[in-house]
Design a protein around this nucleic acid. Structure first.
Lengths: 272, 272
DNA sequence: ACATGTGAACAAATTCACAGCT
DNA sequence: AGCTGTGAATTTGTTCACATGT
């Protein structure tokens, strides 16, 4: 996923596996909860359970950071919170801009966990002039025209895109040109970005489709018969069978069967 | 190449790698866009570019589904759309419930791409009695009390949790008890679920933290020395440095620091 | 005793490179 | 000539199992 790539293959033992990096936030959250309950130490076993991973993986992950535990005892919660925070760069405060203040953008702006650890919503930006000045989550929305100025004045390097799909690519280009080097993309589009810029995407329909894949498989293995479509709804508490839909395969060249909607790839969550 | 020796992958080796499954929705989206432009065929090179992956990976992915391409030509767009849809289980219509109709839940309910491809919002559920009956995205919100009834009557097997973190675990338990076997969790918590239940999570702050990790690294490698203050006091459109914050380590046994981390604290440059 | 930290085995995913079909 | 499909090589990630230190 992360497109980020520099020609420098990390000089020192500075080579934390990507999979480990992706789990650090999970550990941090579990540790923070323990910290709030004033728990002084945890074992890899306990912490792993809280984070939903197995303990061997957790220990291996931590081993990439250094030796922060005590044999026979476990890990000091406060100390580990600090070390992981530092590793993730959360001992700094990152100003973030959210572009596209529709339903989703507003939800993100209101999201509490945002400011709580290391991030600060520096500005909300929307293309709709009618939104300008209106406060969302206590922050006045600014117009897209000022995007570059906002980025530069606030030293923003992380941008969140919550616009409709059609606008996302262009927004990303402007963000990048203004100095943003990390983007969290909620729009259902593949962003094309230059090397050195990291993009992570959050995509509802992709997640649902992955679930559907597994769901379908579950349904198919209960009864070895691939039969389906018992139209009725009352599927009891077990499998639950969805209704059939969608067109069958197209013979050869396939007629362009349209689904009757201006739909397809364009949807997002936002006003015009 | 999983089991390799048990049985040969003659016709359909039921074992599509998870990484491949996760990319199928991406391919499907790109193909749908091509389909709408009435493009009849694509090469692996073109499609890969549109989906943001490399062509070798794409061909390998497709090879798990079967041989749906034509050598020297490429892939028939319509045909592939159908095959991938079928593989993902999207030739069926999956009823979905969204629990927790706050800002985020409402945004999800309004999400267009939802209904467009295989999914249908069967019900919106919220714990707030004041919400009951109020329509969101044209669908009346129902009260949590009726959760089990709603799941069963609609044959729902996929649930979306958009509640506050504190309610998520309990909601998941009720969903599962009522027959849901796939959950998409937007709440910032690790859900504890029994075997056989799939959970995928979408977590804003985790994504941001991963970006911060890479962002921090970028900042550190521009000049091997963490020094900053290169002219341009106004913070140009380049790196952009965040302000320092957060507490230092909590004393204790901070002795075992083996890596010479010059990274400890980055100089602050621009406050708000 | 006990729990970390890690080398080694194992498994999954990616990339290479080219044989084979159109 | 061009592009797919796939074994083989490579890289990345996970799990095992135990030596090591408190």
């Amino acid at each position: 996923m992360a497109t980020g790539r520099t020609h420098r293959p990390a000089t020192r033992s500075r080579g934390i596996p990507e999979a480990t990096v992706a789990r650090l936030p999970l550990y941090l959250r579990a540790l923070t909860a323990l910290s709030e309950r004033s728990v002084p130490t945890v074992s890899s076993e306990e912490l792993a359970a809280a984070a939903g991973v197995n303990s061997a993986k957790l220990r291996k992950d931590f081993s990439y950071l250094g030796s922060y535990g005590t044999r026979g005892v476990g890990y000091d919660v406060e100390y580990l919170v600090y070390q992981i925070s530092r590793e993730l760069g959360l001992t700094q405060d990152w100003p973030v801009v959210i572009v596209g203040i529709g339903n989703l953008g507003a939800a993100l702006a209101n999201y509490g966990g945002f400011a709580s650890r290391g991030f600060r919503v520096a500005a909300l930006i929307d293309a709709d002039p009618a939104m300008a000045g209106k406060p969302v989550a206590g922050i006045p929305v600014q117009h897209t025209d000022d995007l570059e100025k906002i980025i530069e004045e606030n030293g923003v390097s992380i941008g969140v895109i919550a616009t409709p799909a059609g606008a996302a690519q262009q927004v990303s280009e402007r963000l990048i040109a203004a100095g943003v080097t990390s983007i969290l993309n909620f729009a259902p589009t593949v962003l094309q970005v230059p090397d050195g810029v990291d993009v992570r995407k959050v995509d509802l329909s992709i997640e649902l489709q992955i679930l559907a894949f597994h769901e379908q498989r579950k349904a198919g293995e209960e009864t070895s018969a691939p039969a389906e479509g018992t139209g009725a709804a009352g599927a009891g508490g077990t499998g639950a069978a969805p209704a059939a839909a969608v067109e069958p395969p197209a013979g050869r060249a396939a007629a362009a069967a349209r689904k009757g909607g201006p739909e397809g790839d364009v949807p997002a969550v936002m006003p015009a």
